[in-house]
Design a protein around this nucleic acid. Sequence first.
DNA 1: GCGCAGCCCAAAAACGTTTTTGGACTAGCG
DNA 2: CGCTAGTCCAAAAACGTTTTTGGGCTGCGC
Lengths: 348, 348
Amino acid sequence: MNESVPRRASIRDVAAHVGMSVSTVSRALNGYADVSRKTRDKVRQAADALGYRASFAAATLRSRQTETVTFMVSKPWTKFVDPFFLGLLDGVEMVLQAQGYDLQVVMAREYDKELEIIRRAVERNRCDGLIFSRTRPRDERIDYLQARGFPFVTIGQTNRNDHDWIDRDHAIIARTAIGRLARLGHRRIAYLSTPYRYTYSHHARAGYRQGLEEAGLPHDPTLEMECFLSRRTGGEALTELVTTGAAPTAIFCGNDMIAISAMDAMRRLGLVPGRDIAVIGCDDMPVAALTDPPLTTFSQDLDALGMRMGRMILAKLGGESAPLQSFIDSKLIIRESDMPPMPEGAGQ
Amino acid sequence: MNESVPRRASIRDVAAHVGMSVSTVSRALNGYADVSRKTRDKVRQAADALGYRASFAAATLRSRQTETVTFMVSKPWTKFVDPFFLGLLDGVEMVLQAQGYDLQVVMAREYDKELEIIRRAVERNRCDGLIFSRTRPRDERIDYLQARGFPFVTIGQTNRNDHDWIDRDHAIIARTAIGRLARLGHRRIAYLSTPYRYTYSHHARAGYRQGLEEAGLPHDPTLEMECFLSRRTGGEALTELVTTGAAPTAIFCGNDMIAISAMDAMRRLGLVPGRDIAVIGCDDMPVAALTDPPLTTFSQDLDALGMRMGRMILAKLGGESAPLQSFIDSKLIIRESDMPPMPEGAGQ
DNA sequence: GCGCAGCCCAAAAACGTTTTTGGACTAGCG
DNA sequence: CGCTAGTCCAAAAACGTTTTTGGGCTGCGC
């Protein structure tokens, strides 16, 4: 179809053009020290003139280096949830490209496919390092990569936790939220959890319980509800709590989507979100500032998170062998959804 | 570091294992017709047993085929704007993977870098086809690819328009919006445009003007304002309109972000969005349903758009040479922000 | 028995780099 | 002058596939 396009210049052409050997050209282009500055300049100039670029396939075939990091994005990060994702990528890409690395993103539709996607990438040698998230307490992706010694960084921890990760400290976040609600005077505080298949949900729950204890509040298991994106949303969980008569006066939600969904349900039940039931979310999605009332929630500095991840994976590729593990800051953003409880007897 | 991992099985190993030649194994694995079914099964089985996977680099080096499509996402698609992006990717990926193609995403921080990114991908042979968006009236990315005969599909048109694209019909969208606002009784309708560097902004403006004409309304150039994400946001444009005394009673916004920003400014000016100034947006971002008042806007079926793009690029890779160009449907989603104008004299 | 398809397969070339190996030249030192 | 170290470079091997080329079987028709 495009036969008319002249064959691309190869390294041989460049070598012929400058009257040097192929190996010298290669070494010059790759910045090796044992080629004189004059030679290097001459080679580079010739390469530019001929429009030469090293074939990616040939280079990685020989060197076994792709200079590429793959970021696998899990499917439930979609629609509403994904502002998180893109902000993150931005940070990662920024630090990778500064070191000459390419960032590639692949999508995983279902969790079942994630391991296969990783195996493909690793075994076909399509990247030098991996980044992914949504870690689970027992995560086969991590088992696989650890066994193979392949460099990777995750967002989130696991039970084994002997690998490289970065995470928010969800235990502290939850504790902080409960502490604040308790100080406002709430005594029945529910935890609307993200799915327990993810490790961080457990950390948040632990923080929730610790927060209750510190505030001297009893732990009522019926106030802990696991929520999902489709089946039993935050709204459905809240409705359940209210209609079974176990209504809390405040809720802490594992993420903003749950909080928004719950506030929606409150309105449907004739309750005023924030006033009748206080709510604190987590993530500080852009929408959080726009809800009614504006949502009190926990921020995350996505750029910082992304850049930190980029630096971590680069460190790994550079040969760092000690596990790199770190928490990233998260601040409570106080808006208007966390009001004190209604005075006794003033309710319905 | 990971020297202990046994060398990966190569095609030679599986050939030896089944006692056949390397070429037969290759042909069997790649499903050529001239290898018997029995042989193929035997080979596949051996490959599985040995955990063999063809080296990506070696395969593309020889065959010049990457079986990969690259999607370049432009930077201004970030934070708030990106639900668009991820929904799209989902559709594309779905149809690509059904044909055994991989989808890769790369990010472009600034427009200046986009051409360079494309050149790198094409000239280093990292993909067989490209998808990108945010087309401009004169778009050097497209000039480059067309000249090279490299397969690509864009979201959006250009002035040359002799390439493959998919787009919403922004002229019709704008016309529809103006028509509706005019029928509601509005006579001063502003157009808060997306940046004119993008082709579709011009189409929308043309539709806006045509809509005015069809409604028998005069065209007042001061009611056309170009808006950006940072400098002169929708809110700033609206403030300008109102404070210079040229206030419209309705606005049509090139996208939902502009609309949201404008509604925000209205409140700051003591105006009630929807009631004092009607607003219609475009995109139907998830937030649109949550604004106050809920935003009337134009939908886009992202899955459908993505899948259509996937099919288009596959057709191109399959050798289709005629230009593929198509519009994708967009429906007006009526919510509450497009109210009739206030009765004369009832203002402030 | 011979020729001819049709099916199956093996050997080797080719893809375009990077890396290894080894050697030539120069400068410095005794 | 001879030796050594340092600098620069060339030739060739290697990476792991796919594709090309060519050839050996088997069965069938004559």
